[in-house]
Design a protein around this nucleic acid. Structure first.
Lengths: 120, 120
DNA sequence: TAAAGGTACCTTGTATTACAAGGTAATATG
DNA sequence: CATATTACCTTGTAATACAAGGTACCTTTA
């Protein structure tokens, strides 16, 4: 039984996606009231795929942490929907995350630039 | 007993850092042979803090997956060091990750731009 | 009106993984 | 030779994304 295990390239993508998941979800909610399927749709349109089993626990968590509010709204066709919006604290958290993300992506960008320089 | 749990802002930062951890480690190793403390030092200088207990398992994992090679090199002062370098497969993986990161950070950037537009 | 289909919500179990804490060993120093 | 320093590594824990499966409501259609 070999201990070596081929590296799965998809894994890197999954990790990076996870890293910004809460952040991107808050960004989407900041644009207006949305319910779960809206969020999944929008993330997909940005090539940031997320499934229900991932999203629902995150929304609950962010609600319990005080960053999100929701209200039930009846649908014209189908069961009622839970529409989410940012609380004041959610807005503050989002602003903080934006700064963190910008700083961090700048750092990574620097490393990439060095890498490309070395390569050529 | 309340179910609500205040959101810790540091957590967002930790999540984002984790998302690009393997990637940034490979970027650093791509610049030349380095050992663990070098990597920690460089990450720190980019404000991407990582500790030993995190780094060693990642290095082992990347080695087992065939992305990293290492060789023992005696130090002039202290115990021998394990110097890591990218394998050919590691280089390919790094190139792939770079593309993924660029695509993903572009998506996030778009969402941030929309957010800033709405805010003003 | 009963069945089937669609849409929405949620939960449980599992695997991964970052990290804190603690451990071993080699070399240098007082 | 005792202590400090530098290096490597492991074990236990908590967080968390995701697959899979479940419930409930509403509409359509046979």
């Amino acid at each position: 039984m070999s201990k070596s295990n081929k590296y799965k390239l998809e894994n890197a993508e999954a990790q990076m996606r996870k890293g910004s998941l809460e952040f991107t979800i808050l960004l989407i909610i900041s644009q207006g009231e949305v319910y779960a399927s809206d969020i999944i749709r929008q993330l997909k349109s940005h090539e940031l795929i997320v499934v229900e089993g991932t999203l629902y626990p995150i929304l609950s968590r962010l609600n319990r942490s005080g960053l999100l509010d929701y209200s039930w709204v009846e649908s014209e066709s189908g069961p009622p929907r839970k529409y989410y919006s940012l609380t004041r604290e959610g807005v503050r958290a989002l602003e903080h995350m934006t700064r963190v993300w910008e700083r961090m992506s700048r750092s990574v960008r620097q490393l990439i630039t060095q890498y490309k320089k070395v390569k050529s």
